[in-house]
Deep mutational scan, measured.
Amino acid sequence: IDAAQIVDEALEQGITLFVVNNRLQYETSRDSIPTELLNKWKQHKQELIDFLNQLD
Rank of each mutant, 00 (worst) to 15 (best):
Q13A: 13
V20H: 13
N53F: 07
T28D: 02
L11T: 08
D8W: 15
A4L: 07
E12Y: 08
Q5R: 12
I1H: 11
A4P: 05
Y26R: 01
V7W: 06
E9L: 04
N22Y: 05
L11V: 07
N53I: 14
Q43F: 09
L24D: 00
L52H: 01
D8Q: 15
T28A: 05
A4R: 12
R30L: 12
S29Q: 11
L48C: 02
L11C: 09
L48I: 15
Q5E: 09
I6D: 02
T35N: 11
T35I: 14
E47W: 05
V20I: 11
L48T: 01
Q13C: 07
D56N: 15
Q43V: 10
P34Y: 02
L17K: 00
R30K: 11
K40Q: 08
E27R: 15
E47R: 07
V20W: 10
I49F: 04
I1A: 10
P34G: 04
Q46D: 11
A10K: 02
D2W: 09
N39K: 11
D56W: 09
Q46Y: 08
T16P: 02
L48K: 00
N39A: 12
L38E: 06
N21L: 06
D31V: 07
S29K: 10
Q25S: 09
W41V: 12
E36L: 08
K42R: 13
K45V: 14
L37R: 01
N22S: 06
H44V: 06
E27C: 12
D8G: 12
G14L: 04
F51K: 02
L48H: 00
Q54V: 09
I6K: 01
E12A: 12
D50R: 10
L48P: 00
K45Q: 15
E36R: 07
A3Y: 11
D2L: 12
D56F: 11
L17D: 01
R23M: 15
Q5W: 10
K40R: 07
V20R: 12
E36S: 09
L48Q: 01
F51E: 01
A3K: 02
A10V: 01
A4W: 11
L11D: 04
L37I: 05
L48S: 00
A4G: 10
N39I: 13
T28N: 05
N39L: 12
I49M: 06
K42I: 15
N22V: 03
L38M: 10
N53E: 08
S29N: 12
E47G: 06
Y26Q: 02
W41I: 15
D50I: 11
K42P: 02
V20A: 11
T28C: 05
P34K: 03
D31M: 05
I15D: 00
S29E: 14
L38V: 10
N22C: 10
L24V: 05
D31K: 03
I6L: 13
D2N: 14
Q46L: 07
W41Q: 00
L55T: 12
K40D: 03
A4M: 07
E36M: 08
A3H: 03
Y26K: 01
E47S: 08
R23L: 14
I15Q: 00
Q54M: 12
K42H: 14
T28W: 05
E47V: 13
L55F: 08
I49R: 02
L11F: 12
L55C: 07
G14Y: 03
V7E: 01
F18T: 14
D50N: 12
L17V: 03
W41C: 05
E9S: 05
N21S: 07
Q43P: 03
I15H: 04
K40V: 09
R23A: 14
F18Y: 13
G14F: 04
I33H: 02
D56S: 14
Q54S: 14
I1Y: 11
K42N: 14
K45C: 13
K45L: 15
D56G: 14
A10H: 01
I15F: 08
Q5S: 13
N21G: 11
S29D: 14
S29G: 09
W41K: 00
D56T: 12
R30A: 09
F18V: 13
P34F: 02
D31A: 06
E9T: 04
L17M: 06
T16H: 12
E47A: 13
Q46S: 08
T16Y: 14
I49S: 02
K45R: 11
Q46R: 09
Q13P: 00
L52G: 00
Q13N: 14
A10I: 02
D50F: 10
L37Y: 06
D2V: 15
L48A: 01
K42G: 08
P34Q: 04
I15Y: 08
V19L: 07
V19I: 07
E36T: 08
V19R: 01
V19E: 02
L37W: 06
T35M: 13
V19F: 03
D2K: 11
Q25D: 08
N53W: 07
D56Y: 10
E27D: 10
Q25L: 14
E47T: 09
E36P: 07
E12H: 10
I33A: 04
V7P: 00
E27Y: 13
D2Q: 11
H44F: 13
V7Y: 15
E12R: 15
N22E: 07
L24C: 03
T28L: 04
Q25R: 12
N21Q: 08
Y26P: 01
N21A: 09
L48M: 04
S29P: 06
D50W: 09
F18N: 06
A3P: 14
I6S: 01
P34S: 06
K40N: 05
T16G: 04
I33C: 02
A4T: 05
A4S: 11
T16K: 15
I49K: 03
S29W: 10
I15M: 03
A4Y: 07
I33D: 02
T28I: 03
R30F: 06
D50A: 13
L48D: 00
D50K: 09
T28Q: 03
Y26H: 04
T35D: 13
V19A: 06
I6P: 01
A4E: 07
Q46P: 05
K42F: 14
I33M: 04
L24G: 01
E9C: 05
L17I: 06
Q46C: 07
G14S: 04
